[in-house]
């Protein structure tokens, strides 16, 4: 178990991490998600031991790694890290980079070959670093970090330079590898799709504060506040009274606000007993069509994601209803910390 308790780190002008507490169970993967400047990289550097916390402590199992009085140096933590800017050694080739941290020379070649194959870069083994593309360099950095067989793997935006098709394949391979080898992983990213795929837990950071810490489904369906809800996808924030029109008979508090995801609202034919609405705008996204609708009267604008062949046009009349299996989540607008 990797556990941080009340971790704080500040510069002279601003607080980068503010009283952060979290737990990542051994062998699981947690993703640190947040906008730029939220403290993701600082948290990873602090866990790695490259920076020290001003207050609080960090433990791996029973071992105290960091506190204001104690600091286990990074090279003795049994961890490795993939840097956002890769930081590959330009005077070594790909093989030299990947094998750099491997302790026993006998194991090095086998392990390097296996990792290069896992990440589909075997053909680059003897290439110089400055002859590689950004995506190839990123995979070499990943292989280098895995080669030292870490207890904890830290990754800072590990797939940002890799194209979408390859990324999906690598996700799957890396996920299986981490599971098979019991490696605890902490991944910083700003891509929530990456976070959903990878994570057993997601830590949501904003301005150095941890504002949500839950499994992916819970984060998406029951976020801690409106900001988290919007960060993870399109939202409709409706009062109980407004939502009651879409879901008659549901026990809702009229003044409370509820999160309703666009894909949980169904469009029906007008006059079928559902709430009447007019199409105000449509946007085609390929996998779905986003439709913005205005409820009859002075109701709020509602977003709906439609799949299927039907194309809606602005001004068209439709019926709206909440899917029966959808569970609207009451939203507290204040951050949950």
């Amino acid at each position: 178990m990797l556990r941080g308790t009340a971790l704080t780190r500040a510069t002279r002008t601003r607080t980068i991490l503010n009283n952060l507490s979290f737990e990542v169970p051994a062998g699981t993967t947690a993703t640190v998600l947040g906008p730029s400047g939220s403290g993701k990289t600082t948290l990873l550097r602090l866990v790695m031991g490259l920076d020290r916390p001003d207050t609080g402590e960090l433990r791996l199992g029973d071992q105290l790694l960091s506190s204001p009085d104690r600091h286990v140096p990074p090279q003795k933590r049994g961890m490795s890290m993939v840097f956002q800017e890769f930081t590959l050694f330009p005077n070594l080739d790909v093989e030299g980079n990947v094998a750099f941290g491997v302790k026993r020379a006998r194991d090095a070649e086998t392990r390097v070959d296996a990792l290069l194959e896992l990440l589909e870069i075997s053909q680059l083994k003897h290439r110089r670093i400055d002859n590689l593309s950004g995506g190839e360099q990123q995979r070499v950095a990943l292989a280098r970090a895995l080669a030292v067989a870490p207890r904890v793997l830290l990754m800072d935006e590990p797939f940002s330079n890799i194209d979408a098709m390859l990324r999906q394949r690598l996700f799957e391979r890396l996920h299986s590898y981490l599971r098979a080898n019991g490696i605890t992983a902490l991944v910083a990213t700003h891509d929530h799709q990456e976070a959903f795929y990878f994570s057993d837990h997601i830590l949501v950071l904003k301005d150095g504060r941890l504002i949500d810490h839950n499994p992916p489904r819970r984060i998406y369906e029951q976020p801690a506040n409106a900001w988290v809800a919007e960060f993870f996808g399109d939202t409709n924030l409706l009062t109980g009274a407004e939502l009651g029109v879409l879901a008659p008979g549901r026990p809702l508090q009229p003044a409370a606000r509820y999160l309703v995801r666009p894909e949980t609202i169904e469009l029906t034919d007008p006059g079928s007993g559902a709430a009447a609405a007019t199409v105000a705008k449509t946007v085609y996204y390929g996998a779905y069509q986003e439709v913005r609708l205005r409820l009859e009267g002075t109701g709020p604008e509602i977003r709906v994601h439609c799949t299927g062949p039907k194309t809606l046009r602005v001004g068209e009349q439709v019926g709206l209803m909440l899917r029966t299996d959808a569970a609207p989540h009451p939203i507290n607008d204040e951050p949950a910390d």
């Binding site: 790695m48 930081t87 050694f89 005077n91 750099f100 941290g101």
Partner: peptide
């Protein structure tokens, strides 16, 4: 500075990184 830190994250100490990376660079 970045390479020294990269060495640490791979469990490699200051001296080896200095000898094999920093001085050649």
């Amino acid at each position: 500075a970045g390479y020294l830190e990269a060495g640490w994250t791979l469990g490699v100490g200051r001296w080896r990184t200095t000898w094999q990376i920093l001085l050649p660079l």
